[in-house]
């Protein structure tokens, strides 16, 4: 076999293009003053609406010293709220992870009747006000509700109890994983899975070794968003939980109780913990994105080579 000379060259030919890109950029760049104004506006906005409130929360939380902060956190009702919130997250996030993957898989890889209805329905929790979501579940499952008597006769308590909280939060966070995965899976198409099948792999092997690695980062991102929302959900939980202190108060509800009782320092202390969880979430998300970019960078996936199919 003769060699394919032009084919065997190392793929470095594209590197020269970056110089052109720079020159092109310079020609159409905005004037310096405009750049500064735009960046200035964006930064001041962020400072005013994000950094300042966060600073206030942390400052107020620690205003009277670490001891007071610590007491507010370990106080039985607060500790119960923290435990409940974590319990909800532990149940809801895996639930939505599985649902998200299944729904995205179904939508991206199969053609079926009612597909567009399913796509619309997945978005519904984003569109409905959380309070309305809470009311829907109260009407459906509450003691005066449609299924209430049946549930009562079987000694099952959902509304004003932990199952109700888990239900509404699962409902509210339903779209996150699926929404991340659907466009990703649609864009990737079926060919890699089909190759895997022709190579003798079964469906399960194909899912674990081809599909999942391809959507890994989208999946992690969806889970992080889902997690953040599950911890912070207020409106729907406020309706269904019954706000029993130490029993059905999640962290956001507990904060509101403290605030209404003029226990500002304690309110800010629990807030700071919730904010810290949110910050950790964002940090993990940034790390995920950074890691993703690094992985693609290592693969030589610059903007230029990415275009080739």
């Amino acid at each position: 076999m003769s060699s394919l000379a032009s084919e065997n060259r190392a793929p470095g030919a594209a590197a020269g293009a970056s110089g052109h890109k720079l020159a092109w950029h310079r020609a159409t760049e905005e004037p310096a003053w405009l750049r500064r104004v735009l960046i200035g506006v964006a930064l001041s906005f962020l400072a005013l609406f994000l950094v300042l409130p966060l600073t206030v929360v942390i400052y107020s939380a620690f205003e009277q010293g670490l001891k007071v902060w610590y007491d507010a956190i370990v106080e039985p009702d607060a500790a119960a709220a923290i435990r409940l919130t974590l319990l909800v997250v532990v149940i809801v996030v895996p639930l939505n992870l599985v649902f998200g993957v299944v729904a995205a898989w179904a939508i991206a890889k199969f053609e079926f009747r009612g597909k567009s209805v399913l796509i619309t329905l997945i978005d519904l929790p984003f569109a409905i006000s959380p309070v309305v979501v809470g009311l829907i579940f109260v009407i459906l499952l509450g003691s005066q509700g449609w299924l209430g008597p049946w549930l009562a006769s079987h000694e099952m308590r959902i509304i004003f109890a932990v199952p109700g909280i888990i239900l509404v939060i699962a409902f509210g966070t339903l779209p996150f994983v699926a929404r991340e995965l659907i466009p990703l899976m649609q864009q990737q198409g079926k060919e890699e899975e089909e190759s895997s099948l022709t190579l003798g792999a079964n469906g399960w092997q194909t899912f674990w070794r081809v599909t999942l690695p391809n959507v890994k980062w989208g999946l992690i991102y969806g889970v992080i968003l889902c997690n953040a929302r599950a911890m912070g959900e207020f409106g729907a939980v406020a309706v269904v939980s019954g706000r029993i202190r130490g029993e059905t108060n999640t962290m956001p509800l507990h904060i509101e109780v403290l605030y209404n009782e003029y226990m500002f320092t304690a309110a800010f202390a629990v807030s700071s913990l919730l904010a810290a969880l949110a910050i950790v979430t964002i940090a993990v998300k940034s790390f995920v994105e950074w890691n993703d970019e690094r992985a693609q960078g290592a693969a030589g996936l610059t903007g230029l080579t990415r275009k080739t199919p």
Binding site: E192, E194, S195, T198, G200, N214
Partner: peptide, 19 residues
Amino acid sequence: HVSDRGVGFVFQHYALFKH
């Protein structure tokens, strides 16, 4: 089933496993 048929299939857009 395609997995057991023992065919080699080459796609237009290669369909290599990217990762």
